[in-house]
Write a protein that binds this DNA or RNA. Structure first.
Lengths: 252, 252
DNA sequence: CCATCTTTGTGCACGCGTTCACAAAGACAT
DNA sequence: ATGTCTTTGTGAACGCGTGCACAAAGATGG
């Protein structure tokens, strides 16, 4: 191994499978909607339909949390909302910093989903001195120079990286050095972090490419006959974009 | 993974596992960077490090595409870029519509990652009449009334939903009815789509909640060894957090 | 109290994905 | 040509996640 690993070793997060953890927010959202409609109880079948999953899977997921249901009746909505919230750590307040206040960073700062559910945008940070002091989402943007102090003063442990790809690793390193242990990365780069730091990636480009793959397949295997094994004189010159994105359009 | 209530059995896409497809864009990005540096060949070990994955996994992934490597040498960078691009369907142009030009939609429209790699923003659509005609990312926003015509005229098959949650399903239905078969959904809702339509979800709130879960776990184990195997204690029943037995917090 | 009905919780089997480990394949030097 | 060295490609084992199917648990009614 040359570079540092970016994955946590153990999946045994107190016995709750990672796949289950990833679905808990889904359940929580559906339960919150039910709670707002004052629905007292819900069956695994109903809740599973609302969350878009299999009912057996949902029951198994809940079984990892404990036996919170009543046979013959279902689950108490309020109680389950509380239990899942507690399990996810949403009963406490999580200050979050957003680094890189460009188009995306600003949109994230304004995103309502951040403010709700226990997450609070503690600071907006950008490297551009011209941005410093400018209000975004009712909050002044602060300069990268103060990154360490901001994180320390606010006890921030979750950071969001919305910088260009080139700056992401550097920002990441500083965040980690400052005490951040969870990172949500929007930059199209693989981040290297030490053990104990969690990184989750959101990559719009990758999502689109996956869709394109399936779309191409759906579009018909009519033209899929030719394969590239006899690709004639692979073009050596590619149009290289400054930010590293090449359309890679090749002669067929 | 692809959401939606329609659990199609993956339809064994030409024998290429879904997990492999999801990693191909990652490889492609790393390869593109190598290509820009005019690196002629790369070993599976090097490329795996650059992409942040295991080298054996990478080799197995590539084996699904064919035998494109040379033993004792490695992979030809240019050739591999072409093969992966072709496999992902990036050798053709994919027109994309973005529906919901709020903060997030506008950021997406401006996002460079969209424009590159064969994706082209064909239209921006919003339900607000006040938005109609306003330029965003150098392109006039069009009204939802023309949604069907826009999709049809441009031959769009990929749609991005960046509307509020309440409007997402309705927009989704119209997109599907208009011929869209792939959807990238940013709205925090479970979308129902008919068979044959792919939906991928990007949910910032869910990502944060997953991070919070791990963060809470890390914070709660400062006293004991962080090895989870030593914590099979059945203290699950009615353990109350430091905040006591409070009813569920109800985020808006 | 007993019977019946509903729904949970879970044992089990299966399939997918990951990883190991190694033989096969080719490059390269002699 | 022959041997050595490097790296691929893959068979096989393993672990995780999923879904079925059913017994256990509790509600409900007589």
């Amino acid at each position: 191994m040359a570079t540092g690993r970016t994955h946590r070793p153990a999946t045994r997060s107190r016995g709750i499978p990672e796949a289950t953890v990833a679905r808990l927010p889904l359940y929580l959202r559906a339960l919150t909607a039910l709670s707002e409609r004052s629905v007292p109880t819900v069956s695994s079948e109903e809740l599973a339909a609302a969350a878009g999953v299999n009912s057996a899977k949902l029951r198994k997921d809940f079984s990892y949390l404990g036996s919170y249901g009543t046979r013959g009746v279902g689950y108490d909505v309020e109680y389950l909302v509380y239990q899942i919230s507690r399990e996810l750590g949403l009963t406490q307040d999580w200050p979050v910093v957003i680094v890189g206040i460009g188009n995306l960073g600003a949109a994230l700062a304004n995103y309502g989903g951040f403010a709700s559910r226990g997450f609070r945008v503690a600071a907006l940070i950008d490297a551009d001195p011209a941005m410093a002091g400018k209000p975004v989402a009712g909050m002044p943007v602060q300069h990268t120079d103060d990154l360490e102090r901001i994180i320390s003063d606010n006890g921030v442990s979750i950071g969001v990286i919305a910088t260009p790809a080139g700056a992401a690793q550097q920002v990441c390193d500083r965040l980690v050095a400052a005490g951040i242990t969870s990172i949500l990365n929007f930059a199209p780069t693989v981040l290297s972090v030490p053990d104990g730091v969690d990184v989750r990636k959101v990559d719009l480009s990758i999502e689109l490419q996956i869709l394109a793959f399936h779309e191409q397949r759906k579009a018909g295997e009519d033209a899929a006959a030719d394969d590239g094994t006899a690709a004639p004189a692979v073009a050596k010159d590619h149009r290289k974009g400054p930010d590293g994105d090449v359309p890679a359009v090749m002669p067929a």
